[in-house]
Structure formats: C-alpha cells, structure tokens
C-alpha cells in the first residue's frame, strides 16, 4: 500500500481516466475524494471505492468557478484536514475548426482545462506548503505535442498545462511539493467515441507501435508511481503514455 492514509483529490474523477486513477489510489490505501461536475457519476465511483474497502467522498465541483473550487476546498478540509495528492483531470473536449470555433467554446476549454489547474493549485497549495509535502499531477494530452485538427483550443490548453506545471514545480520544490504532468495518448474511454464511430475508434486505438490498446489503467499506473514516495525526486516532468505513438 503505497498511499496508506494519504488524502487524494481527483477532479474529473467520475469517469474514464479519472475514475481509474481514483480506484487505483483507493487500492493503494488512499482516502479518495472524487470531485466532478457530474455529481451522480462521482457518487457511483465513490461507492465502487467503498466496495474496495477504501474511504471515499464524492463532491460536485466546477473547476472553472472560483466559488465552486473554494467550496470544494472548504468541504475537504472540514472532513480530512489536509490534501496530500491533487490530480487535475477535469477537462472538456469540444470539436470545431478554428475558423468557426465560438468564443464561448474557447473560453470553456481554457477555463476548465487550464484555469481549473490554476484554481485548484491556489486552493490546495497553502495546505501542502504547511505540510511541507504534496503531490500535484496534472493530466495534459499527447495532443499538446502533436496538435489535433478541430481541437486547437484543447491542444493549446493542454500544452499550457505543461508550461504551468514546470513553473509550479520550480515554485513549490523548496516546500517538498512535486508537480508533474501526464500526456496520455488516445485511451479506451468515452472521450474518443464522442466524435467517432465505435469501429473507427477501436481501429485508431489499436494502431500504435506497441499494438496495445491504451486503457485508463495504463494511465493510472504511472500516476500512482508519481504520487508515491518512490518518486520523491521527480518534479517538473511530463510523462508520455501513448504506446509509442508520440516520442518527444
């Protein structure tokens, strides 16, 4: 049990990669907060965690709202008194070519994907500084490196996360807090299916050098490593988990 009694917050923890991270943290002994805009789904994941024997709490949050993140922090500190691990996974993925992308969509993508990182860091870093320890792990995307047609806002937001993480790692290192990013390739979740047929999705997921379909658990594993004591000397890095599709 590498995370025994650690308090771990996963935003966007209700489904897909976030859910796998939450379950993985619970299996490693962490007390898990599943925070998501979709409160019912978050509660389902919390129930799964409890069935595994882990302590879990589902909370609703809009990471793009200062008040909502503030309320989230208050509820967490009231119940747990601390946060050891913050995983920023909440994100949106809205398809449209740049020339016809609405300002609303642009703002939403940047506010949730990037702004959420900022607001959550601001809310939870002071407690980590007091503890003189903490782990922040932000989910970017291989699209940050490769770009993607009709997802320019998403690519920009995810690349910006990498820059943010590097700067934050420098700011927080002296307090014993590590900050790292993860760039998953396209994974076997609902997300790629939103804009493609099942057949096309699976064909694309199989077309990797390793020939292995990237599962949410493949992303969760390295995050558990980064959250554990074994990764105490690793900060400011970006881990690319994509079965060999992008090497940078």
């Amino acid at each position: 049990m590498r995370l025994q009694d650690k308090v771990a917050l996963i935003t966007g923890g209700a489904q897909g990669i976030g859910r796998a991270i939450a379950l993985g943290m619970g299996q490693e002994g962490a007390r898990v907060i599943v925070a998501d805009l979709q409160a019912e789904k978050a509660e389902t994941v919390a129930a799964e965690l409890r069935a595994l024997g882990a302590e879990a709490l589902a909370l609703d949050v809009n990471v793009a709202s200062e008040q909502s993140v503030q309320r989230l922090a208050e509820r967490i500190f009231e119940r747990f008194g601390r946060v050891d691990v913050l995983v920023n996974d909440a994100g949106v993925y809205l398809k449209a070519p740049v020339v016809s992308k609405s300002e609303e969509d642009w703002d939403r993508t940047l506010d949730v994907n990037l702004g959420g990182n900022f607001l959550c860091a601001r809310a939870f870093v002071p407690a980590m500084r007091r503890q003189k320890s903490g782990r922040i792990i932000s989910i970017a995307s291989s699209i940050a490196h490769n770009g993607a047609r009709e997802f320019a806002d998403y690519a920009a937001s995810k690349a910006a996360i990498i820059g943010f993480v590097k700067a934050l790692a420098r700011e927080l290192g002296p307090d014993g807090i590590t900050v790292n990013a993860i760039c998953p390739g396209s994974a076997n979740t609902d997300m790629p299916r939103r804009h493609r047929s099942e057949e096309e999705t699976m064909a694309r997921l199989r077309a990797t050098p390793l020939g292995h379909v990237l599962e949410p658990e493949d992303i969760a594993g390295p995050i558990l490593f980064l959250a554990s004591d074994a990764a105490a000397y690793i900060t400011g890095q970006t881990y690319n988990i994509n079965c060999g599709t992008v090497m940078i």
């Binding site: 790692a169 420098r170 290192g173 590590t178 390739g185 050098p209 390793l210 292995h212 990237l214 599962e215 493949d218 992303i219 594993g221 390295p222 490593f225 000397y233 690793i234 900060t235 400011g236 890095q237 881990y239 690319n240 988990i241 994509n242 079965c243 060999g244 090497m247």
Partner: peptide, 14 residues
Amino acid sequence: SAAITGQLFHCNGG
C-alpha cells in the same frame, strides 16, 4: 509502465 515506450524520464529534482 506497460503503455510507455520511446520516452525520456528525467530524475533531477526539477
């Protein structure tokens, strides 16, 4: 790390 290949991993305290 089953899905990780061709990557570079720094370990340098930032």
